[in-house]
Computed example of a mutant assay.
Amino acid sequence: MQFDWSSRVVPVTVAVLLAGCGGGGPTSSDDDTGNDPPVDTVALTVQLGEMLFMDESLSEPAGQSCATCHDPGHAFADPDVSDQNPVSEGVVAGRFGNRNAPTATYAALIPDFEYDGATGRYRGGQFLDGRAVDLKEQAKGPFLNELEMANTDEAMVVEKLRAAPYAEMFEQIWGAGALDDVAVAYDHMAEAIAAFEETELFMPFTSKYDYCADDNFSCFTEQEKRGLDLFRGKGLCTECHIEDNGLFTDFTYRNIGVPPNPNNPYYAEEPDFIDVGLEANPMLTVDADRQKGKFRVPTLRNVAVTAPYMHNGVMQTLAQVVNFYNRRDQGCYGSQVPLVDCWPDPEVAENMETGNMGDLLLSAQEEADLVAFLETLTDGYQPMP
């Protein structure tokens, strides 16, 4: 691995995690002294977090878990979104969120939400608008969102935790009465989910990019090498998707002029909906009027397998994404079909990025080369023997 995030990644193997998935918490047995062995609360918290992440009984009605929209087999993104339904459906049939669910991979490495006075930009935070300061706070949100897991309040969730087969694990980790107080119990739940998301299962750093980086990318194809050169140079990608931290994001917020998505089913609930992004974040302290339309720059790791793209899922392929960055400002004319032949006006025109994108003068071959490079960022690469 080229980039050392080891201090932020919990080195718990998948085998250890899955050992706790059989129902209730692990049982203690007496050691040679007749005393119970000490409980490894770190490992136990991770195991509990996985159970909570996978538990479909914690929604109202039952049927949706964190993993429903962040599937471990799909780079922790939603496998069920499509061109016609580009955002996730909640547990209540026919009700959809208003944003494309991002991948949860590498989310634990996003810094806490803050305003950087030196750059005049907000950075970090969870959700695409940063409204949760950190991963623990993010974990609390979906359970109470009426468009997601749809519980009415924390008490409803905690009542389900008390009845769960893993309820005793809360007391093993946090002591007797860990589920008695609703607010405290809800906080414990979020802490456990965050602990699970801090494991190497979410942050494996096993892409072809990682494998080839130690040998100066000699194992890249010629097209992938050209794409990397474009990424670092003419494509201006590293202006926001910085490479030196290994996450391909600077965690800042930008309005890149994404057009509205006419296929977003949320318009059925709110026909005049405009997603203002960061502007709606209640934690803004300065320059709120300059944040409209901005969303956090996402990681590009696993980007090839986590379509659709952009906050509203308006783009279905990486080829479209690269073409948008290249040709956004050329507009639509005559018989051109918006979103097919050209790029229509942005959903929010204020505060739009203009210097780093929009008319990059890339050729069709260069666009294809960039896509080839982006495909090297998918985890799980297995080199040929």
Rank of each mutant, 00 (worst) to 15 (best):
P265I: 04
F231E: 03
A101E: 09
A178R: 03
A132P: 00
F3A: 10
V39R: 04
E366K: 02
E224P: 01
P86D: 14
T299G: 05
M149R: 02
F3G: 03
Y309Q: 02
T103G: 03
V340H: 12
R123M: 02
M315C: 11
V340L: 15
L18A: 13
V10A: 07
D71Y: 05
T27L: 13
P271R: 04
D80S: 15
A132T: 06
G49R: 00
T45R: 03
V321Y: 03
G20R: 00
V314E: 00
F143M: 10
E198L: 10
N261E: 12
T317H: 12
S7N: 10
R123K: 08
S28C: 14
V158L: 12
P282S: 06
P72Y: 09
P282L: 05
N264S: 07
G117F: 06
D83N: 15
I173S: 00
R131D: 12
Q365Y: 13
E279G: 05
E224K: 01
L18D: 13
T252E: 11
R95Q: 11
L109C: 03
D129I: 02
V133M: 12
D30Y: 05
T119F: 06
F76G: 00
A108G: 06
L318I: 08
G277E: 02
R131P: 05
T45K: 07
Q382W: 14
L58A: 05
M357V: 05
A19Y: 07
S88M: 08
K160V: 04
M169H: 07
V348L: 11
E168F: 08
F196N: 01
E239T: 09
P259R: 08
T378H: 04
T33F: 13
L228G: 00
F205L: 09
Q291S: 15
T199V: 06
V14N: 10
A15L: 15
D287M: 08
R327C: 10
V305P: 00
A319Q: 11
G293Y: 01
L360T: 03
G22E: 06
